[in-house]
Design a protein around this nucleic acid. Structure first.
Lengths: 227, 227
DNA sequence: TCAACAATAATTGTCTACAATATTAATTTT
DNA sequence: AAAATTAATATTGTAGACAATTATTGTTGA
């Protein structure tokens, strides 16, 4: 559960997450405690604490006596990640649908997010688009008003971003905003089976757009990217 | 993601979890870093690291400059916990059902667990029964061979145990093994809607067996319980 | 007797230091 | 020149120390 509390170590968590989502931190990159200590001014202890949380979430990998590395999802793991997402996000959209039918759902909040994705797509801000695309899925979870669903989904979203960074070709249409739009329309139609079909189609397309034969990319080591 | 890795801090995590599941650690109880340091022989640093993971999972609560405490789930949180469980465990049983239909599921492994629950119920080993009952749900998750589903469910199971410790009357039939048997039979029938009905009935009964008007119990402070 | 206040003790947050391990660079050997 | 070995460097794991904060105890006054 990667929280957003007020502890200093959570700032480390936030910075790492933001760096991953904006593609400044790639899978496999080493992160030493000292380098982040210097960059943030926190003590090494605080950095370690942040790392523990990220390792716990599966976003960082930590072998004993070695520096932590950004996780490199395997093909098998990627498929598991999206299976888990199908389970959780199926539940989420059904909860949202119930809320919408009972007039307790602010659909405009969702529409705004999709609009922002569209803008970023047009202007070609790819780094921000990844972030916005992740935000869409997380915001849907948040609209359920269930902290446990949010915290279950959050690490999976991050891992998905890493998987995309490993296996997605440029412009492969991974997690496209058009499909977000489709999902949104399905919810607005108040049709349960249509909505479920939309979320499953979207998540399946995400996996199928990946190219698992892609050769591993060269990964430069970490060098002052948190700015 | 409360892992079971080989790090020393994970031993702290394991001990705390076991103490909670065997009812030796009750909601609201304070845990000081020093007392566990003395008990385990680890350095305070290691204990802290374990605490960070448990706080992250929501099992422990940590306010700045105060000792961590075992979480006391509220009524609202408890309902959210079980809503999240419904979502995840619905997915799990459907995956298992698919596996069973494809002859890839070892049903005997499940049957053995239920048998053990029955034994513990008869012999009145209530502490072990709680643990066995939690194990049943987690084992179902593990049989999906999806680490992310397991790690999503694990904290929810722990929190459920805490919620029961707060809101369950003695012998209220919280999470009964009979319903586990029913669920198992439904899976064996290879009937999807029957299986889904069984898991939802079980989880709903869990919540409904709780008494949210129960007055908060007296909580003795921590005193050498990890033995 | 009880409440408010002050003094003491205990606990956490943070930093520094040092040993153990891993990584890198340099040297030697073939 | 390439591989293997050795030396040097860097990084992690752990422990300990001190300040800041909180919890507890003891005291005073009504």
């Amino acid at each position: 559960m990667i929280s957003t509390d007020s502890k200093s170590s959570d700032l480390v968590v936030q910075h790492v997450i933001r760096a991953i989502l904006s593609n400044k931190l790639n899978p496999g990159v080493k992160l030493s405690e000292i380098s982040l200590q210097e960059e943030f001014g926190f003590s090494r202890n605080v950095v370690r604490e942040g790392f523990v949380k990220l390792v716990d979430a599966g976003v960082l990998i930590h072998k004993k006596n070695q520096s932590v590395r950004v996780a490199i999802p395997s093909e098998e793991q990627t498929k598991q990640i999206f299976q888990a997402r199908r389970v959780i996000e199926n539940g989420i959209v059904q909860i949202l649908l119930d809320k919408y039918i009972d007039d307790e759902l602010d659909v405009l909040a969702i529409e705004g997010l999709i609009e922002k994705e569209k803008q970023l797509h047009i202007t070609g801000h790819n780094a921000e688009l990844t972030q916005a695309s992740c935000n869409f899925h997380l915001r849907l979870a948040e609209l359920c008003h269930n902290q446990y669903l949010v915290e279950s989904l959050r690490p999976l979203i991050l891992l998905s971003a890493l998987a995309a960074s490993v296996f997605a070709d440029k412009n492969s249409g991974f997690c496209s905003f058009q499909e977000h739009q489709d999902l949104f329309n399905a919810i607005k139609s108040k049709d349960k089976s249509k909505t479920i079909a939309a979320i499953n189609r979207h998540l399946n397309n995400c996996v199928e757009s990946l190219n698992f034969d892609l050769k591993p990319k060269e990964r430069t080591s970490y060098s002052h990217i948190f700015n």
